[in-house]
């Protein structure tokens, strides 16, 4: 699904060059649930941006679902973000003043899917994250946990190759956080590839594999031994 070969990312701030990623090699297969861990400044956010095609690598190769990402132009990258990647952010990043349903429809709108199918698929995605009864609420009328569910539903609708979650529980209380992680586990069980970026070991413990970063390099890549598993109630 994902293959990264000697990937580097250098930030040129003019006077000094900061090497955020130093020749990273990483492979993530289909159906994996990977937690990328590390303290702030370790390079995990940079990797997240590159994996999410929001940023280009300075060097190295990046294959996502067979696409040579480093060779694509901005328009093609936008299409990749639209179809192959589902983002879940720490601060939800929903459009306020818009209903949950409309928010979930948004990626399909940019994909050029007809309004009728859009609504059907958005409704199905919201049902899937347990928000079937809140579809027409505006996003700023929902609780944090509910908002993050909407964001997850939004990340799912175009049936992406990977779901990229950047500190998805960072703005949530423990209970909501656990529920959200349960949803990710459930999605993973259903076949989705989930990549989780976090600095909390407890959250990483929901994943199946942990890739730890420090100073722009991978320092550890292991399977999770004592995995927390939320038993899905639905």
């Amino acid at each position: 699904m994902i293959r990264i070969d000697s990937l580097t990312k250098i930030y040129d701030t003019g006077s000094i060059q900061v090497e955020a990623l130093k020749k990273i090699n990483l492979e993530i297969g289909k159906g994996e649930f990977v937690a990328i861990m590390g303290p702030s400044g370790s390079g995990k956010s940079t990797l997240m941006n590159v994996l999410g095609c929001l940023d280009r690598p300075s060097g190295g190769l990046y294959r996502l679902d067979g696409e040579k990402i480093e060779e694509l132009n901005d328009v093609q990258l936008a299409a990749i973000r639209n179809k192959k990647i589902g983002f879940v952010f720490q601060s939800f990043n929903l459009l306020p003043r818009m209903s949950a349903l409309k928010n979930v429809e948004l990626p399909m709108m940019y994909a050029g899917i007809s309004p009728k199918i859009r609504t059907e698929r958005a409704e199905a995605a919201l049902e899937r994250v347990g928000l079937g009864d809140r579809m027409h609420h505006r996003s700023n009328e929902l609780s944090g946990g509910q908002r993050q569910r909407v964001a997850i539903a939004r990340s799912l609708v175009n049936d992406p190759a990977i779901i990229l979650a950047d500190e998805p529980t960072g703005n949530l209380d423990t209970k909501s956080g656990n529920e959200i992680m349960g949803i990710f586990q459930q999605l993973n069980e259903e076949g989705s590839t989930v990549i989780l970026v976090t600095h909390e070991a407890e959250i990483a413990a929901y994943a199946k594999r942990i890739v730890a970063f420090r100073d722009g390099e991978i320092v550890e890549d292991r399977l999770v031994e004592e995995r927390i598993v939320i038993v899905s109630e639905s």
């Binding site: 999410g52 929001l54 901005d74 328009v75 973000r81 990043n93 948004l106 940019y110 939004r154």
Partner: peptide, 13 residues
Amino acid sequence: REIGIRKAIGARH
């Protein structure tokens, strides 16, 4: 921020 969100989920230039 809205523009950022839209771009992240696939809006083109």
